[in-house]
């Protein structure tokens, strides 16, 4: 599991960790039953405060995405995949809403926006297909 942390981002570090784990589960990089690194290990790996990692794990447990397994540490829950996919859709919607909101405030028309979005989707999926 590889995570990337940006300490000066607006999103708090614990949330960055929690989100990236959810994205990994949604994309199949982490599967139900997989264990995540211990708090100490991940804190060291990312060079972030261990309480921050512990907080991310607590939130993921509260969401039913991670389960504490006796002797194993934390593992990805069986029903986590669906939850993470729902969550992923919500974040994508949020981030798009930010961009769209910015464009609308700058007086870009709805039609212009649609054509830009179409274009971006086409270009990116062509690139994905090639790689």
């Amino acid at each position: 599991m590889f995570l990337q942390i940006h300490p000066d981002d607006a999103v708090p570090i614990y949330e960055q960790i929690a989100r990236q784990i959810q994205f990994a589960v949604a994309a199949g990089g982490l599967m139900p039953g997989d264990t995540v690194p211990s708090v100490r290990e991940l804190a060291r790996q990312l060079a972030v405060n261990p309480n921050t990692v512990a907080r991310a794990y607590r939130e993921l447990q509260a969401l039913g995405i991670l389960d504490a397994q006796r002797g194993l540490g934390l593992t990805v829950a069986a029903e986590a995949v669906e939850k993470c996919r729902d969550q992923r859709s919500r974040w994508i919607r949020e981030r798009l809403a930010q961009v769209v909101g910015e464009a609308l405030r700058a007086k870009v028309s709805a039609r212009q926006l649609q054509s830009i979005l179409q274009d971006v989707i086409q270009t990116l999926s062509r690139q994905e297909a090639q790689s």
Binding site: R40, A43, R44, A47, N49, P50, N51
Partner: peptide
Amino acid sequence: RQFLESMVDRAAA
């Protein structure tokens, strides 16, 4: 980076 890691590890302990 190594310094930070050692520091983090102290806190984890």
